[in-house]
Design a protein around this nucleic acid. Structure first.
Length: 476
RNA sequence: GUGGUUUUAGCUCAGUUGGUUAGAGCGCCUGAUUGUGGUUCAGGAGGUCGUGGGUUCGAGCCCCAUAUUCCACCCCA
């Protein structure tokens, strides 16, 4: 049988020992901060029912859902549906029946609902909302949870974009207070600062402000159209945005009003004051401005780089209040490494109305990419935790190492003995390749004197140690 | 979903207008050095040229399909 060449699905990656250590370093840092702010861990299944996922992420999002083929005879219900159409001549057939009664001309989208009822989770927020609704009677509100798990999107991979990637979310549900928004901002700052990503920026906006702008410019219905267009302001410039909106049926007058608003310059406070005047006819808009003003004024840490950005839209359709996005200004990755916002009615879709939630997300994989590029990982992150490798020359000296090996492990020091009888050079090669800092060499002489020759593989220094001095040497 | 791009040794890449046996550097293995790694020197192993078709006397090179890499758009962590 010919050996098959192993491959990986598009957009997925293996993580070797060194990669995992770095990723865990990020995860641990973020998790510690989450806990410090009172968030509790939650894990949900990899797959959810499509009824839970669909319709929560907008039209684009639905297309990017990974769907799981039903088990068993997944064509059965499709066949039954087809038979029903065949027996009902008045029905306008979705699937044109062939002479033999077999399924032909299948419309993929229409067929999907018959053969797939589950999908891989697209984010952590919607499964969380589902959890809250299902466990509403066990939960003490306000409920603060964090969740760090992979999510999947059937996107086309590119820089900073993967089909399988991890999100680290912290959300609060059951509280309208803007103090939650403030806490989440502090969490962003603490985590990114601890990771060494100094030159980051939290962009902040409010969906209500976007609604207000739409109301003033034309009508509240065009909020999404405007949001999508002005979101590209950085990329295509004012002329590009104008052109796009003209094609969408906006008038020059309307566009002048729009740009008069979004090009307001100045200090955050000054911008909001001017905006208040321009949006005075929109109650919704004024509410949004008030929320933003509170957050800016109450932020206890003035060092946090909070930027008002009315062009920030965010695609997920469930946001209703404040929205955040974090970008790193260092490095070549210009897309966001974190994002979030308030959603007033996400649980309402599942039958639990009037529960407001707000949350943020860290994009582990993009944070990793930024940190790798900027060389922000600590030097001491190694693939193995082993501190001491016992080296020997024959069976007798190998056995002589075992009590010392146990003593080290009992003292909490990661150690291992080279398992095979190979030349000392090979054993040191192994230690060197794995960046193990110490080699404890046991030969005939050492065994007789009940000691080890301990070599520091970083400095090359060598000394004779008893087990106790070895523990002291490595333990420091 | 649209457009471009990549794929040759474990890794990074050469490979001329289609022409004998497909190369380099690094890494790996062995030895110099049977008790000392990261330096040096000598030798060695390792490739169905992404996959499947086609054109040709002859294909790593040309054509078609497909997978894959990376990038941009769309959208997003």
């Amino acid at each position: 049988m010919a050996a098959q060449k192993p491959t990986l699905p598009k957009g997925t990656r293996d993580f070797g020992p060194a990669d995992v250590q770095k990723r865990k370093y990020i995860l641990n840092t973020i998790e510690t901060v989450f806990k410090k702010y009172g968030f509790m861990p939650l894990e949900t299944p990899t797959m959810e029912n499509l009824s839970t996922l669909e319709g929560k992420y907008g039209e684009e999002g639905d297309k990017l859902l990974f769907r799981i083929l039903d088990s068993g005879d997944y064509l059965k219900s499709l066949k039954e549906h087809n038979d029903k159409i065949l027996s009902d001549e008045s029905q306008d057939a979705t699937f044109a029946p062939s002479f033999s009664g077999k399924l032909i001309d299948l419309d993929a989208k229409a067929a999907t609902k018959f053969i797939s009822e589950k999908g891989l989770r697209y984010d952590l927020t919607v499964p969380f909302a589902r959890y809250v609704v299902m466990h509403r009677n066990e939960i003490t509100f306000p409920f603060k949870r964090y969740q760090m798990q992979p999510v999947w999107r059937a996107d086309r991979p590119q820089k900073g974009r993967y089909r399988e990637f991890w999100q680290c979310d912290a959300d609060v549900v059951g509280s309208d207070s803007l103090l939650n928004e403030l806490d989440l901002i502090q969490i962003y700052d603490e985590a990114f600062t601890q990771l060494g990503i100094k030159n980051y920026e939290i962009k902040i906006n409010n969906r209500k402000v976007l609604a207000g702008i739409a109301e003033v410019v034309k009508s509240i219905d065009v909020m999404n159209t405007i949001a999508v267009a002005i979101d590209k302001l950085d990329k295509i410039g004012e002329d590009g945005v104008r052109k796009e909106l003209l094609e969408q049926g906006f008038s020059e007058t309307e566009l002048n009003i729009l740009f008069d608003i979004i090009t307001i310059k100045g200090e955050n406070k000054e911008i909001l004051n001017q905006l208040k005047v321009k949006l005075q006819s929109s109650q919704e808009g004024l509410k949004g401005i008030e929320e933003l003003a509170f957050i800016l004024a109450s932020n206890p840490n003035p060092k946090i780089n909070l930027t008002l950005d009315f062009s920030l839209a965010r695609g997920l359709s469930y946001y209703t209040g404040c929205i955040f996005e974090v970008i790193s200004n260092d490095g070549t990755l210009k897309s966001s490494i974190g994002g979030g916002g308030r959603y007033d009615n996400l649980t309402g879709i599942f039958g639990l109305p009037n529960v407001s939630g707000v949350g943020i997300s860290f994009g582990l994989d993009r944070i990793y990419d930024v940190m790798e590029e900027l060389k922000l990982f600590p030097e001491q992150l190694r693939a193995t935790s082993t501190q001491v490798l016992f080296c020997h020359f024959d069976e007798a000296t190998q056995l002589y190492c075992l009590p010392a090996l146990k003593a080290l492990r009992d003292a909490g020091i990661a150690a291992e003995v080279f398992p095979d009888n190979k030349k000392l050079g090979k054993q040191l090669d192994y230690a060197n390749a794995l960046q193990i800092p110490f080699a404890a060499i046991a030969g005939e002489t050492e065994m007789q004197q009940q000691v080890f020759t301990v070599k520091n593989l970083i400095t090359g220094e060598q000394q004779t140690c008893t087990i106790q001095t070895l523990i002291g040497l490595v333990g420091q």
